[in-house]
Design a protein around this nucleic acid. Structure first.
Lengths: 229, 229
DNA sequence: CGAGCGATTGAAAAGACTCAACCACCGTGG
DNA sequence: CCACGGTGGTTGAGTCTTTTCAATCGCTCG
């Protein structure tokens, strides 16, 4: 199923926990404890971590790499809901709802993912009250992003949304966006052809630069104006 | 600002707490405590409870009535994110993010709303661990609905989404939907004219019945097929 | 009774998608 | 080493959906 390689020499102690959205507030002893409950795997690009509809077995933490979270429509068309990177935790929502996965998580590049068994994770949550607060603020933040997203989609054109998504991706990819047109289209929620046209329009307008499959942002400000936020 | 009338004779003890999404697990003493920290107001239809951008001061609980939660786009166009009714809690997300309100809450009909001061609410949360778990599952559920919504919007036609929304409204309004075309349009995320056209199409197809401003669902099954879920 | 708002309808324009063809690059196998 | 096939990217043309604009209608409320 998962084309992985378990690795033994990764410890949470040398992971940048301070930048982890969930575990950043843990102290040394707690990180140590966390370390003992997790296992790490190396995943190649395009590997599925969990599939929508499958039972929730774990929470996952990204040590390196990038993940796309998407839902699949009836016709197989994908909608990317979120791109996650180093320091993000995946699968929290589904785990807390005590339900099956509603989204699919797939690596966008080679990644190191740490897995914490569901019951261990819940035990961890219950033993560290601060984690529950972190979870609540994480989830709230997620809701905020999603509601903004919905308003964007219903009220803005593909051109505007693309500008918005490029700015998000520019941040995640640290100024060197390497994402397929298909994935960008699945993120924006538009057809690939339309995305290609708008991209080349942005290029013509000197807002971005396209080198091979790398997109470089040349004018963040103008893109912001187009995205109008 | 708020056209309200404070009322003294409402107690949480005779409110249907068992059906409250957040407080349902409280025992008698806890409900009593909750009762002492809240105040209730009667709000007329079209009253704004809080406005996007304003500071978060409280959490709110709906005793009777219905509320729409929406965000406003640049051009003033609204996007309804959620309709809430008796037993729902409003403002949780913004309160937990420690930020200003990102959505506006407005009554859709005359309602009785109970208010719990922000610090009291947080104190309450901290004193009753079970509440934090409820909060987490509430938020997770919300996320699940929103992600589904996003996929719906990008992948389905207005006709399909309208069918979907009508089924949701039919549930909330208990088989007698009384909502303006404008509000339905703002919920579906489409133009009013388009919604009117699709509604009259549904009527022609005998899926719904329209009496004055009341929409009655005649074939839930066929609507489900159109919404395809 | 008149103003005004919500609902409705028609026609035209804009936006987005689909389909089809073609290109460019890359890795493979002969 | 090169031909081949496949994948991802690109472009054009036509079609469909949805929006916009404008006009009309009907009802309610002062």
């Amino acid at each position: 199923m998962i084309d992985h390689l378990e690795i033994k020499n990764t410890t949470c102690l040398n992971c940048n926990i301070q930048e982890n959205e969930l575990f950043r507030t843990l102290n040394y002893a707690q990180i140590n404890h966390l370390n003992n409950t997790k296992t790490c795997v190396v995943l190649k690009k395009k590997n599925i971590i969990f599939n929508e509809g499958s039972a929730v077995t774990s929470a996952y933490c990204i040590r390196t790499g990038k993940i796309k979270l998407y839902s699949t429509g009836i016709d197989g068309k994908k909608q990317i809901i979120q791109i996650l990177k180093k320091g993000n935790v995946i699968g929290l929502t589904d785990l807390l709802k005590q339900n099956n996965h509603e989204l699919t998580a797939e690596t966008l590049e080679d990644s190191i993912i740490c897995r914490i068994d569901k019951t261990s994770f819940l035990k961890l949550l219950n033993s560290m009250p601060v984690l529950k607060d972190n979870v609540a603020s994480l989830l709230s933040n997620e809701i905020s992003i999603l509601t903004k997203e919905i308003t964007n989609i219903t009220q803005r054109s593909v051109r505007q949304r693309l500008a918005y998504i490029i700015l998000i991706l520019n941040d995640i990819y640290e100024n060197k966006i390497t994402m397929s047109r298909q994935d960008i289209a699945d993120y924006v929620g538009a057809s690939t052809e339309n995305i290609i046209r708008e991209l080349s329009s942005f290029k013509k307008e000197n807002l971005i630069q396209i080198e091979r499959n790398i997109i470089l942002v040349k004018s963040q400000n103008k893109l912001k104006i187009i995205a109008s936020y």
